[in-house]
Simulated assay, not measured.
Amino acid sequence: MFKKILFATDATPVCEIAAKTAFELSEKYGSELILVHVVADFFQGTCPFVPDMPGKEKTLSVPEYTAFVKEGMKKNYGFLAKRFGDPEYKVIKGKSWEEILKFALKIKVDCIIMGAHAQKEASAEKTLQKVAQKAHCPVLSIARPCETSFWYFNRIIFGTDFSKASMSAFQFAYKLADYIGCKLHIFHALDIESSGTGDIPGQKQIEDQIKEAKARIEELYVSQMENFDNYDMAVWEGIPYVELLKFARETSGDLIVMAHHTKDIDSEKAFFSHTIDQVVFRSACPVVSVNKYCNFK
C-alpha cells in the first residue's frame, strides 16, 4: 500500500512526534523511507540539525554543508533508525513546500508525512497547507503523540460532507481498510447551524436529515465497496469538527481520513477548510488529507 514514504522534517518537536509514525509505518509496510529537510539557503544561519556547524570563519562548499546536515539528521533520528532501519536522507535548498512537492513527485512517493504545527507557526503551517493542497498522494499530518494507534491501523474513520472533493478521500480510506483488513467507519456530521438563518431544526427534522444522510452514504460509498463488509456508518448532529473528534475518541479511531477541503470550490484556491483545520490540530490520532490529484480507483 505504501511502497515509498516521504517524511518532511524541520527538526521541531512536532516533527519528532511525526518521525516515530513515519518509521513505524515504513516497517509495517516494508516501505522505502526517505527523510527530507529543506533549507532556504545553504549558507544562511544555523541548521537546526547541526547547531555547532562551522560559521563564517570557514566557508563550506555545498557538498560539505549537505554532509553536515545529513550527519545531523542521522544523529537526531539515530534511535529510530537503530530500531526500524536506516532511511535515506535528503537535503534540498529552496522554498519548503515547493521542494517537498517537487521531490515527492520526482520519486513517486505513496504518502507524505508531516508534523502539524501550531497555528501560530505561520510559516510551517503554510508549508503543510500548500503540500496538502497540491500533493499527488495522501498527506498524513500528526500534531501529538498517538495514543490509540496500534500497529497502524485498526479503525479508520472517513469523515465526509458529501462534496465531490470527498470522493478521493473515500477511495483512499476504503482501499486502505480493505488492504489492511481493518474496520472502516463512515462518518457525517449534520451542521444544524450552517443555514445562517439562526433557526435550529426540530427533533423530527433532525431525524429526517439523519435518515437522508445515511441513505446518501449507502448510495455514494457503500455501493462502491463490493464485498467489503467490515464497516459501519454514523451520522451525528452538531459542530462538524467537534462531533468528528468525539466520534474518533469514542470509537478509539487511529486514523482520520478527510478531503483536503470540504466544499465544492476550486481546489487551486482552497486551503484547509475550517473543519479539517481544526481536526488536524486537535486530533489525538494521525489525520490524512486527500485532494483531487490522488486517484485510487
Score class of each variant (00 low, 15 high):
N230S: 09
Q133A: 13
E250N: 12
P87L: 03
D86L: 09
A189V: 01
Q203M: 09
V14S: 09
C47A: 10
A22G: 06
E98P: 01
V139A: 03
D191S: 08
S289E: 03
L6W: 04
L140K: 12
F68W: 10
F7L: 02
T21H: 12
F162V: 01
E64M: 11
S168Q: 13
Q278D: 07
A248P: 13
I92V: 05
K175V: 06
S166V: 08
D254P: 03
V39P: 06
D110W: 05
K58T: 14
Y77V: 06
I206H: 01
S31T: 04
P201A: 09
E226G: 03
P286T: 14
A259P: 01
A104E: 08
D191V: 02
H260P: 03
V50Y: 06
A81G: 04
D52S: 14
H260S: 12
A116K: 07
W151A: 12
P54I: 00
F43E: 10
I17M: 00
K214L: 01
I256H: 10
K95C: 02
K204V: 10
P87F: 04
I200L: 14
T46Q: 15
V287W: 08
S123V: 15
E121A: 11
E71Q: 14
N154E: 12
K28H: 11
K74D: 06
L105S: 14
G202W: 05
I142M: 08
I34W: 07
M233R: 09
T251E: 15
V36N: 03
W236H: 09
K134G: 07
Y89H: 08
Q203F: 04
H136Q: 05
F79Y: 15
S61E: 13
E125I: 00
D41L: 11
I100D: 02
A270V: 09
T59N: 07
H37A: 03
G253A: 13
C182D: 02
G85M: 08
T251W: 06
